[in-house]
Nucleic acid binder design. Structure first.
Length: 417
RNA sequence: GGAAGGAUGGCAGAGCGGACGAAUGCACUGGUCUUGAAAACCAGCGGGCCUUCGCAGGUCCCGGGGGUUCGAAUCCCCCUCCUUCCGCCA
Protein backbone atom coordinates (compact mmCIF):
# COMPACT_ATOMS: atom_id res chain seq x y z
CA UNK A 1 0.00 0.00 0.00
CA UNK A 2 1.03 3.49 -0.84
CA UNK A 3 2.22 6.08 1.71
CA UNK A 4 -0.50 8.72 1.86
CA UNK A 5 1.66 11.20 3.71
CA UNK A 6 4.28 11.15 1.01
CA UNK A 7 1.60 11.26 -1.65
CA UNK A 8 0.39 14.46 -0.03
CA UNK A 9 3.80 16.06 0.52
CA UNK A 10 6.18 14.87 -2.16
CA UNK A 11 5.74 15.91 -5.75
CA UNK A 12 8.04 13.16 -7.06
CA UNK A 13 6.11 10.49 -5.23
CA UNK A 14 2.87 11.80 -6.67
CA UNK A 15 4.19 11.99 -10.22
CA UNK A 16 5.47 8.42 -9.85
CA UNK A 17 1.88 7.32 -9.39
CA UNK A 18 0.71 9.33 -12.37
CA UNK A 19 3.45 7.79 -14.49
CA UNK A 20 1.90 4.42 -13.72
CA UNK A 21 -1.21 5.62 -15.50
CA UNK A 22 -3.32 6.88 -12.61
CA UNK A 23 -5.42 10.00 -13.23
CA UNK A 24 -4.38 13.01 -11.12
CA UNK A 25 -8.05 13.58 -10.28
CA UNK A 26 -8.17 10.22 -8.56
CA UNK A 27 -5.15 11.11 -6.45
CA UNK A 28 -6.71 14.42 -5.47
CA UNK A 29 -9.89 12.65 -4.55
CA UNK A 30 -8.00 10.24 -2.31
CA UNK A 31 -6.13 13.08 -0.63
CA UNK A 32 -9.30 15.03 -0.06
CA UNK A 33 -10.96 12.02 1.54
CA UNK A 34 -7.89 11.41 3.63
CA UNK A 35 -8.07 14.91 5.00
CA UNK A 36 -11.73 14.50 5.87
CA UNK A 37 -10.91 11.21 7.57
CA UNK A 38 -8.23 12.77 9.69
CA UNK A 39 -10.55 15.53 10.80
CA UNK A 40 -13.23 13.00 11.71
CA UNK A 41 -10.68 10.89 13.58
CA UNK A 42 -9.74 13.85 15.71
CA UNK A 43 -13.36 14.54 16.52
CA UNK A 44 -14.00 10.90 17.36
CA UNK A 45 -10.97 10.74 19.62
CA UNK A 46 -11.99 13.91 21.39
CA UNK A 47 -15.43 12.48 22.09
CA UNK A 48 -13.96 9.18 23.17
CA UNK A 49 -11.64 10.96 25.52
CA UNK A 50 -14.59 12.66 27.20
CA UNK A 51 -16.52 9.41 27.36
CA UNK A 52 -13.57 7.59 28.89
CA UNK A 53 -13.12 10.28 31.51
CA UNK A 54 -16.79 10.15 32.43
CA UNK A 55 -16.73 6.36 32.76
CA UNK A 56 -13.68 6.40 34.96
CA UNK A 57 -15.36 8.97 37.12
CA UNK A 58 -18.30 6.62 37.63
CA UNK A 59 -15.97 3.97 38.96
CA UNK A 60 -14.76 6.36 41.61
CA UNK A 61 -18.14 7.86 42.41
CA UNK A 62 -20.08 7.21 45.59
CA UNK A 63 -23.25 5.12 45.25
CA UNK A 64 -25.48 8.20 45.65
CA UNK A 65 -23.89 10.01 42.72
CA UNK A 66 -23.78 7.06 40.43
CA UNK A 67 -27.18 7.08 38.82
CA UNK A 68 -26.88 10.70 37.90
CA UNK A 69 -23.42 10.25 36.44
CA UNK A 70 -24.39 7.16 34.49
CA UNK A 71 -27.28 9.06 32.96
CA UNK A 72 -24.95 11.88 31.96
CA UNK A 73 -22.45 9.48 30.42
CA UNK A 74 -25.22 7.67 28.55
CA UNK A 75 -26.28 10.84 26.86
CA UNK A 76 -22.73 11.42 25.61
CA UNK A 77 -22.72 8.03 24.03
CA UNK A 78 -25.06 8.87 21.18
CA UNK A 79 -23.01 11.64 19.66
CA UNK A 80 -19.90 9.49 19.93
CA UNK A 81 -21.58 6.60 18.18
CA UNK A 82 -22.86 8.65 15.28
CA UNK A 83 -19.49 10.31 14.85
CA UNK A 84 -17.81 6.90 14.93
CA UNK A 85 -20.14 5.60 12.26
CA UNK A 86 -19.39 8.61 10.11
CA UNK A 87 -15.68 8.07 10.54
CA UNK A 88 -15.64 4.36 9.87
CA UNK A 89 -17.60 4.62 6.65
CA UNK A 90 -15.31 7.41 5.47
CA UNK A 91 -12.25 5.37 6.44
CA UNK A 92 -13.53 2.32 4.65
CA UNK A 93 -14.15 4.26 1.49
CA UNK A 94 -10.70 5.78 1.68
CA UNK A 95 -9.12 2.38 2.15
CA UNK A 96 -10.90 0.96 -0.89
CA UNK A 97 -9.51 3.76 -3.02
CA UNK A 98 -6.05 3.73 -1.48
CA UNK A 99 -5.50 0.04 -1.89
CA UNK A 100 -6.08 0.36 -5.61
CA UNK A 101 -3.27 2.90 -6.01
CA UNK A 102 -0.01 1.43 -7.35
CA UNK A 103 3.43 1.93 -5.89
CA UNK A 104 4.90 5.03 -7.56
CA UNK A 105 7.45 4.35 -10.29
CA UNK A 106 10.96 5.23 -9.20
CA UNK A 107 12.75 8.21 -10.74
CA UNK A 108 15.05 5.84 -12.60
CA UNK A 109 12.12 4.12 -14.26
CA UNK A 110 11.70 5.16 -17.91
CA UNK A 111 8.41 6.76 -18.92
CA UNK A 112 5.96 5.09 -21.21
CA UNK A 113 4.52 1.68 -22.02
CA UNK A 114 5.68 -1.77 -23.09
CA UNK A 115 7.83 -0.46 -25.95
CA UNK A 116 9.56 2.22 -23.94
CA UNK A 117 12.00 0.08 -22.02
CA UNK A 118 15.61 1.11 -21.62
CA UNK A 119 18.32 -1.39 -22.53
CA UNK A 120 20.90 -1.60 -19.76
CA UNK A 121 23.20 -4.31 -20.98
CA UNK A 122 23.50 -6.86 -23.78
CA UNK A 123 25.67 -9.93 -23.59
CA UNK A 124 26.38 -13.17 -25.45
CA UNK A 125 26.25 -14.19 -29.09
CA UNK A 126 22.91 -14.55 -30.78
CA UNK A 127 23.38 -17.70 -32.81
CA UNK A 128 21.66 -18.70 -36.02
CA UNK A 129 18.16 -20.06 -35.78
CA UNK A 130 18.17 -23.84 -35.19
CA UNK A 131 16.40 -26.18 -37.61
CA UNK A 132 13.50 -26.61 -35.21
CA UNK A 133 11.82 -24.11 -32.96
CA UNK A 134 11.28 -25.04 -29.32
CA UNK A 135 7.78 -26.24 -29.93
CA UNK A 136 8.73 -28.57 -32.81
CA UNK A 137 11.80 -29.74 -30.95
CA UNK A 138 9.84 -30.56 -27.81
CA UNK A 139 7.61 -32.80 -29.85
CA UNK A 140 10.51 -34.26 -31.84
CA UNK A 141 12.34 -35.30 -28.66
CA UNK A 142 9.12 -36.53 -27.03
CA UNK A 143 9.70 -34.07 -24.23
CA UNK A 144 6.47 -32.10 -24.39
CA UNK A 145 2.98 -33.53 -24.79
CA UNK A 146 0.46 -30.78 -25.49
CA UNK A 147 -2.20 -32.62 -27.45
CA UNK A 148 -3.33 -34.89 -24.66
CA UNK A 149 -2.93 -32.02 -22.25
CA UNK A 150 -5.34 -29.81 -24.13
CA UNK A 151 -7.84 -32.68 -24.31
CA UNK A 152 -7.55 -33.38 -20.61
CA UNK A 153 -6.85 -29.97 -19.10
CA UNK A 154 -7.55 -27.45 -21.82
CA UNK A 155 -5.30 -25.10 -23.71
CA UNK A 156 -2.02 -23.86 -22.25
CA UNK A 157 -1.26 -27.02 -20.32
CA UNK A 158 1.47 -29.52 -21.08
CA UNK A 159 2.95 -32.77 -19.90
CA UNK A 160 6.71 -32.72 -19.60
CA UNK A 161 8.33 -36.09 -20.40
CA UNK A 162 11.54 -38.05 -20.58
CA UNK A 163 14.86 -36.17 -20.39
CA UNK A 164 13.03 -32.85 -20.15
CA UNK A 165 11.94 -33.94 -16.68
CA UNK A 166 15.52 -34.74 -15.72
CA UNK A 167 16.57 -31.35 -17.06
CA UNK A 168 13.80 -29.68 -15.08
CA UNK A 169 15.03 -31.17 -11.83
CA UNK A 170 18.64 -30.49 -12.77
CA UNK A 171 17.75 -26.83 -13.21
CA UNK A 172 16.06 -26.76 -9.81
CA UNK A 173 19.01 -28.42 -8.14
CA UNK A 174 21.57 -26.28 -9.91
CA UNK A 175 19.86 -23.01 -8.99
CA UNK A 176 18.95 -24.09 -5.47
CA UNK A 177 22.45 -25.17 -4.59
CA UNK A 178 23.91 -21.99 -6.05
CA UNK A 179 21.59 -19.81 -3.95
CA UNK A 180 21.95 -21.82 -0.79
CA UNK A 181 25.68 -21.40 -1.31
CA UNK A 182 25.10 -17.64 -1.36
CA UNK A 183 23.32 -17.78 1.98
CA UNK A 184 19.72 -17.86 0.82
CA UNK A 185 17.32 -19.88 2.96
CA UNK A 186 15.61 -22.52 0.82
CA UNK A 187 11.84 -22.82 1.14
CA UNK A 188 9.17 -24.94 -0.49
CA UNK A 189 6.14 -22.69 -0.30
CA UNK A 190 2.43 -23.46 -0.16
CA UNK A 191 0.70 -22.47 -3.37
CA UNK A 192 -2.71 -21.76 -1.85
CA UNK A 193 -3.13 -18.56 0.11
CA UNK A 194 -5.89 -16.50 1.67
CA UNK A 195 -7.22 -13.37 0.09
CA UNK A 196 -5.57 -11.25 2.75
CA UNK A 197 -2.17 -12.59 1.79
CA UNK A 198 -2.81 -11.68 -1.84
CA UNK A 199 -3.69 -8.14 -0.80
CA UNK A 200 -0.74 -7.77 1.54
CA UNK A 201 1.74 -9.06 -0.99
CA UNK A 202 0.49 -6.38 -3.37
CA UNK A 203 -1.29 -8.55 -5.95
CA UNK A 204 -4.90 -7.75 -5.14
CA UNK A 205 -6.98 -5.92 -6.19
CA UNK A 206 -5.02 -5.11 -9.37
CA UNK A 207 -4.14 -8.59 -10.61
CA UNK A 208 -7.13 -10.45 -9.32
CA UNK A 209 -8.27 -11.59 -12.74
CA UNK A 210 -4.93 -13.34 -13.34
CA UNK A 211 -5.42 -15.59 -10.36
CA UNK A 212 -7.19 -18.94 -10.00
CA UNK A 213 -9.68 -18.95 -7.19
CA UNK A 214 -11.12 -21.76 -5.07
CA UNK A 215 -14.36 -20.18 -3.88
CA UNK A 216 -15.41 -23.19 -1.85
CA UNK A 217 -12.45 -22.75 0.43
CA UNK A 218 -11.77 -19.04 0.01
CA UNK A 219 -8.28 -19.75 -1.23
CA UNK A 220 -6.28 -18.59 -4.22
CA UNK A 221 -3.62 -20.36 -6.26
CA UNK A 222 -0.49 -18.25 -6.36
CA UNK A 223 1.12 -17.20 -9.62
CA UNK A 224 4.50 -17.05 -7.90
CA UNK A 225 5.96 -18.27 -4.64
CA UNK A 226 6.74 -14.62 -3.94
CA UNK A 227 3.31 -14.29 -2.35
CA UNK A 228 3.91 -16.95 0.27
CA UNK A 229 7.52 -15.87 0.78
CA UNK A 230 6.39 -12.33 1.58
CA UNK A 231 4.12 -13.76 4.25
CA UNK A 232 7.05 -15.38 5.98
CA UNK A 233 7.63 -12.16 7.92
CA UNK A 234 4.21 -10.63 8.07
CA UNK A 235 3.96 -8.52 11.22
CA UNK A 236 7.57 -9.15 12.17
CA UNK A 237 10.07 -6.58 13.39
CA UNK A 238 13.59 -7.41 12.21
CA UNK A 239 16.73 -6.66 14.16
CA UNK A 240 18.96 -4.67 11.85
CA UNK A 241 21.75 -7.26 12.06
CA UNK A 242 19.54 -10.02 10.68
CA UNK A 243 19.08 -8.20 7.37
CA UNK A 244 19.06 -8.77 4.53
CA UNK A 245 16.91 -11.87 5.04
CA UNK A 246 17.16 -13.75 1.76
CA UNK A 247 14.97 -16.65 0.74
CA UNK A 248 14.82 -18.88 -2.26
CA UNK A 249 11.45 -20.51 -2.82
CA UNK A 250 10.45 -23.34 -5.07
CA UNK A 251 6.88 -23.97 -6.13
CA UNK A 252 4.54 -24.55 -8.98
CA UNK A 253 2.92 -21.36 -10.23
CA UNK A 254 -0.54 -20.89 -11.64
CA UNK A 255 -1.68 -18.12 -13.93
CA UNK A 256 -4.91 -17.65 -15.79
CA UNK A 257 -3.15 -15.72 -18.57
CA UNK A 258 -6.29 -13.67 -19.11
CA UNK A 259 -5.92 -11.28 -22.00
CA UNK A 260 -3.20 -13.27 -23.74
CA UNK A 261 -5.49 -14.95 -26.23
CA UNK A 262 -3.59 -15.86 -29.36
CA UNK A 263 -0.20 -15.04 -27.85
CA UNK A 264 2.51 -17.72 -27.63
CA UNK A 265 0.11 -20.54 -28.36
CA UNK A 266 2.58 -23.29 -29.16
CA UNK A 267 4.82 -25.29 -26.87
CA UNK A 268 5.36 -24.41 -23.23
CA UNK A 269 6.42 -20.78 -23.54
CA UNK A 270 3.26 -19.52 -21.89
CA UNK A 271 1.28 -22.05 -19.86
CA UNK A 272 -1.14 -21.97 -16.95
CA UNK A 273 1.10 -24.02 -14.70
CA UNK A 274 4.86 -24.02 -14.38
CA UNK A 275 7.55 -24.45 -11.77
CA UNK A 276 9.74 -21.63 -10.63
CA UNK A 277 12.60 -20.93 -8.25
CA UNK A 278 12.16 -17.47 -6.82
CA UNK A 279 14.37 -15.18 -4.78
CA UNK A 280 12.94 -12.93 -2.11
CA UNK A 281 14.66 -10.37 0.08
CA UNK A 282 13.63 -8.42 3.13
CA UNK A 283 16.07 -5.61 3.69
CA UNK A 284 16.92 -2.36 5.37
CA UNK A 285 15.32 0.58 3.52
CA UNK A 286 18.72 2.10 2.89
CA UNK A 287 19.94 -1.08 1.24
CA UNK A 288 17.18 -1.96 -1.17
CA UNK A 289 18.59 -0.37 -4.34
CA UNK A 290 21.82 -2.15 -3.77
CA UNK A 291 19.92 -5.36 -3.08
CA UNK A 292 18.14 -5.06 -6.41
CA UNK A 293 21.54 -5.09 -8.12
CA UNK A 294 22.48 -8.18 -6.12
CA UNK A 295 19.40 -9.99 -7.40
CA UNK A 296 20.00 -8.85 -10.94
CA UNK A 297 23.61 -10.01 -10.72
CA UNK A 298 22.54 -13.48 -9.65
CA UNK A 299 20.02 -13.71 -12.48
CA UNK A 300 22.66 -12.81 -15.03
CA UNK A 301 25.17 -15.17 -13.47
CA UNK A 302 22.69 -18.02 -13.95
CA UNK A 303 21.92 -17.05 -17.55
CA UNK A 304 25.62 -16.82 -18.33
CA UNK A 305 26.36 -20.20 -16.82
CA UNK A 306 23.55 -21.72 -18.87
CA UNK A 307 25.03 -20.09 -21.96
CA UNK A 308 21.99 -17.98 -22.75
CA UNK A 309 22.67 -14.72 -24.62
CA UNK A 310 20.55 -11.99 -23.15
CA UNK A 311 19.97 -8.35 -22.50
CA UNK A 312 18.78 -6.54 -19.41
CA UNK A 313 16.12 -3.89 -19.73
CA UNK A 314 14.55 -1.42 -17.36
CA UNK A 315 10.80 -1.82 -17.71
CA UNK A 316 8.90 1.42 -18.37
CA UNK A 317 6.52 2.88 -15.82
CA UNK A 318 3.32 1.95 -17.63
CA UNK A 319 4.38 -1.69 -17.94
CA UNK A 320 5.34 -2.16 -14.28
CA UNK A 321 3.10 -4.18 -12.01
CA UNK A 322 1.24 -2.33 -9.28
CA UNK A 323 3.65 -3.15 -6.43
CA UNK A 324 6.99 -2.53 -8.19
CA UNK A 325 8.83 0.79 -8.12
CA UNK A 326 11.48 -0.41 -10.55
CA UNK A 327 11.93 -3.62 -12.48
CA UNK A 328 14.64 -5.23 -14.54
CA UNK A 329 13.72 -7.86 -17.08
CA UNK A 330 16.33 -10.28 -18.32
CA UNK A 331 15.40 -11.08 -21.88
CA UNK A 332 17.00 -14.03 -23.60
CA UNK A 333 17.50 -14.31 -27.34
CA UNK A 334 14.98 -16.68 -28.86
CA UNK A 335 16.55 -17.71 -32.18
CA UNK A 336 13.36 -19.04 -33.80
CA UNK A 337 11.66 -15.71 -33.31
CA UNK A 338 14.75 -13.60 -33.86
CA UNK A 339 14.03 -11.48 -30.83
CA UNK A 340 14.64 -11.18 -27.12
CA UNK A 341 11.95 -12.62 -24.87
CA UNK A 342 11.51 -12.23 -21.13
CA UNK A 343 12.86 -15.05 -19.03
CA UNK A 344 13.52 -13.58 -15.60
CA UNK A 345 12.94 -10.32 -13.79
CA UNK A 346 13.56 -8.67 -10.49
CA UNK A 347 11.91 -5.74 -8.81
CA UNK A 348 12.12 -3.48 -5.82
CA UNK A 349 8.79 -3.00 -4.03
CA UNK A 350 10.32 -0.59 -1.52
CA UNK A 351 7.89 -0.44 1.44
CA UNK A 352 4.74 -1.00 -0.64
CA UNK A 353 4.10 -4.56 0.45
CA UNK A 354 5.78 -4.19 3.85
CA UNK A 355 3.33 -1.44 4.81
CA UNK A 356 0.39 -3.82 4.48
CA UNK A 357 2.25 -6.68 6.07
CA UNK A 358 3.62 -4.45 8.85
CA UNK A 359 7.08 -5.90 8.32
CA UNK A 360 9.50 -3.54 10.04
CA UNK A 361 13.11 -2.99 10.99
CA UNK A 362 14.14 -2.00 14.47
CA UNK A 363 16.71 0.77 14.38
CA UNK A 364 18.13 3.43 16.64
CA UNK A 365 15.89 6.02 14.97
CA UNK A 366 12.82 3.89 15.72
CA UNK A 367 11.02 1.20 13.76
CA UNK A 368 10.68 1.70 10.07
CA UNK A 369 9.11 -0.33 7.32
CA UNK A 370 11.33 -2.94 5.70
CA UNK A 371 11.81 -3.03 1.97
CA UNK A 372 10.99 -6.15 -0.03
CA UNK A 373 12.37 -7.31 -3.33
CA UNK A 374 11.92 -10.35 -5.49
CA UNK A 375 13.52 -11.87 -8.51
CA UNK A 376 13.23 -14.95 -10.66
CA UNK A 377 16.09 -17.32 -10.09
CA UNK A 378 14.78 -19.76 -12.66
CA UNK A 379 11.45 -20.06 -14.44
CA UNK A 380 11.99 -23.72 -15.21
CA UNK A 381 9.61 -24.36 -18.09
CA UNK A 382 10.52 -21.24 -19.97
CA UNK A 383 14.22 -21.85 -19.40
CA UNK A 384 13.75 -25.21 -21.08
CA UNK A 385 12.23 -23.39 -24.06
CA UNK A 386 15.40 -21.35 -24.52
CA UNK A 387 17.67 -24.31 -23.91
CA UNK A 388 15.80 -26.36 -26.50
CA UNK A 389 16.81 -23.82 -29.12
CA UNK A 390 20.28 -22.90 -27.92
CA UNK A 391 21.49 -26.43 -27.12
CA UNK A 392 19.97 -28.06 -30.16
CA UNK A 393 22.53 -29.38 -32.66
CA UNK A 394 22.13 -29.74 -36.42
CA UNK A 395 21.79 -33.52 -36.04
CA UNK A 396 18.90 -33.02 -33.59
CA UNK A 397 20.86 -33.93 -30.50
CA UNK A 398 20.84 -31.81 -27.36
CA UNK A 399 24.05 -30.76 -25.64
CA UNK A 400 23.44 -30.35 -21.94
CA UNK A 401 24.96 -27.11 -20.54
CA UNK A 402 28.00 -27.80 -18.35
CA UNK A 403 26.33 -26.22 -15.35
CA UNK A 404 23.56 -28.84 -15.39
CA UNK A 405 25.63 -31.96 -16.00
CA UNK A 406 26.47 -32.67 -12.38
CA UNK A 407 22.77 -32.58 -11.59
CA UNK A 408 21.37 -34.93 -14.26
CA UNK A 409 24.20 -37.17 -15.37
CA UNK A 410 23.59 -36.30 -18.99
CA UNK A 411 25.97 -34.75 -21.51
CA UNK A 412 24.46 -35.24 -24.93
CA UNK A 413 20.88 -36.39 -25.48
CA UNK A 414 20.23 -38.01 -28.81
CA UNK A 415 16.86 -38.24 -30.51
CA UNK A 416 15.24 -41.67 -30.35
CA UNK A 417 14.33 -42.02 -34.05
C1' G B 1 -15.21 -34.78 9.36
C1' G B 2 -17.08 -35.40 14.95
C1' A B 3 -16.12 -34.06 20.41
C1' A B 4 -13.73 -31.19 24.24
C1' G B 5 -10.35 -27.45 25.86
C1' G B 6 -7.51 -23.16 24.81
C1' A B 7 -5.28 -18.23 22.49
C1' U B 8 -2.84 -12.31 27.53
C1' G B 9 3.80 -8.33 26.40
C1' G B 10 10.42 -11.68 23.68
C1' C B 11 9.11 -16.20 26.78
C1' A B 12 6.49 -18.18 31.12
C1' G B 13 2.13 -16.83 33.61
C1' A B 14 -1.85 -13.96 36.80
C1' G B 15 -6.18 -11.23 36.02
C1' C B 16 -12.61 -13.28 34.61
C1' G B 17 -17.10 -5.97 34.59
C1' G B 18 -14.57 -0.17 37.22
C1' A B 19 -7.45 3.79 38.04
C1' C B 20 -5.49 -2.73 33.55
C1' G B 21 -1.42 -1.39 28.55
C1' A B 22 -2.15 -5.19 32.08
C1' A B 23 0.68 -8.40 38.58
C1' U B 24 4.84 -11.64 39.04
C1' G B 25 9.10 -14.42 37.22
C1' C B 26 12.69 -15.06 33.31
C1' A B 27 15.15 -12.81 29.32
C1' C B 28 17.01 -8.03 27.63
C1' U B 29 19.25 -2.75 28.26
C1' G B 30 21.57 1.05 31.37
C1' G B 31 23.55 2.21 36.24
C1' U B 32 25.69 1.18 41.36
C1' C B 33 29.20 -2.18 43.48
C1' U B 34 33.94 -4.92 41.59
C1' U B 35 40.95 -5.07 39.43
C1' G B 36 37.52 -7.67 35.85
C1' A B 37 33.37 -10.94 35.78
C1' A B 38 29.38 -13.16 38.48
C1' A B 39 25.93 -12.22 42.31
C1' A B 40 23.16 -8.41 44.61
C1' C B 41 20.68 -3.81 44.29
C1' C B 42 18.44 0.48 41.43
C1' A B 43 16.21 2.03 36.88
C1' G B 44 14.38 1.08 32.14
C1' C B 45 12.28 -2.66 29.43
C1' G B 46 5.34 -3.00 23.76
C1' G B 47 3.11 -1.64 18.90
C1' G B 48 0.04 1.53 15.54
C1' C B 49 -2.48 6.11 14.56
C1' C B 50 -3.75 11.52 15.31
C1' U B 51 -2.29 16.54 17.01
C1' U B 52 2.65 19.21 17.90
C1' C B 53 8.74 22.67 15.37
C1' G B 54 9.59 20.33 20.12
C1' C B 55 8.10 19.25 25.17
C1' A B 56 3.92 16.65 25.43
C1' G B 57 -1.12 15.16 24.91
C1' G B 58 -5.01 12.04 22.94
C1' U B 59 -6.67 7.45 20.92
C1' C B 60 -6.60 2.27 19.60
C1' C B 61 -4.55 -2.69 20.41
C1' C B 62 -4.94 -8.87 25.76
C1' G B 63 -5.71 -14.22 18.28
C1' G B 64 -9.28 -11.37 14.35
C1' G B 65 -14.22 -9.15 13.57
C1' G B 66 -18.97 -7.64 15.56
C1' G B 67 -22.30 -6.92 19.98
C1' U B 68 -23.99 -5.81 25.31
C1' U B 69 -22.58 -1.75 28.95
C1' C B 70 -21.63 4.79 31.41
C1' G B 71 -17.32 1.33 31.43
C1' A B 72 -14.87 -5.13 28.53
C1' A B 73 -8.62 -8.73 28.78
C1' U B 74 -13.08 -10.07 31.73
C1' C B 75 -20.09 -11.14 29.36
C1' C B 76 -22.51 -12.64 24.27
C1' C B 77 -22.08 -13.95 18.79
C1' C B 78 -19.09 -15.13 14.38
C1' C B 79 -14.26 -16.34 12.28
C1' U B 80 -9.10 -18.05 12.46
C1' C B 81 -5.45 -20.79 14.75
C1' C B 82 -3.53 -24.27 18.50
C1' U B 83 -3.92 -28.69 21.85
C1' U B 84 -6.19 -33.46 23.10
C1' C B 85 -9.46 -37.63 21.76
C1' C B 86 -12.09 -40.27 17.68
C1' G B 87 -12.48 -41.07 12.27
C1' C B 88 -9.86 -40.72 7.56
C1' C B 89 -5.34 -40.23 4.81
C1' A B 90 -0.04 -39.13 0.83
Amino acid sequence: MIDLKRLRDEEIYRSGVIRKGIEPELIDDVLKREEICRKLLQEVEELRSQQNAASKDIGRASPEERDEKIAAASSMKESLQSKEAEYSSAAEMLDDLTIALPNPASERCPDGGEEDYEVIETTGDCSQAPPMNHSEYGEFMDWVETEKASENMGSRFAYLKNEAVLLEFALVQYVMSKLVGKGFTPVVTPVLVREEMMIDAGFFPTDRNQVYELPKDDLFLTGTSEVALAGLHRGDIFEEVSLPARYVGYSSCFRREAGTYGKDTTGIFRVHQFDKVEMFSFCNPEESWNELEVLRGIEQEILNELGLPHRVILVASGDLGAPAALKYDCEVWLPSEGQYRELTSCSNYLDFSARRMRTRVKSAAGNQLAHTLNGTACAIGRTLVFLMEHCQQSDGSFVVPDALRPFCNLEVIRPKQ
